[in-house]
Amino acid sequence: MTIEEQKYTDIMKEDLLKNVKDKCESGYRLVQIGCGKFGDIFEINYSFEKEYSFENLRIKTTEGEKVPSISDIYWGSFIYENEIHDLFGVEVTGINLDFKGNLIRTTVKAPFNVKNVTKVKPEKKETAEKKTEDN
């Protein structure tokens, strides 16, 4: 039961800007940029749409590598690129509106890059409860 055909094109990171520019020039709309971490590899999907035809460009990157920003081509991409930086710790270079990690301020830095993030301070609570009992 497929509603929409799923099109993915794996591209090299170096070719990203060229491919995105092609999309822009042929009249595509930027739907989203989304990141996911699978093993040690970050997978970044750039989704585009034109007249209900939905397409994706996919690049792969690893820890410490930089990804170029596409905000010169799609002005609105800053919101996704800052999000990727804040949640995954992937460095995106040359964003037009760079929040420098302050778009989404989280308790844990780059939470999606850390394994098994658990909430902080369950210990503290126990001691606090003990204290009240003592009193």
Binding site: V31, Q32, W75, F78
Partner: peptide, 9 residues
């Protein structure tokens, strides 16, 4: 990806 995020720019 929610609609509000897309509308912020």
């Amino acid at each position: 990806r929610t609609p509000t995020t897309a509308n912020i720019p």
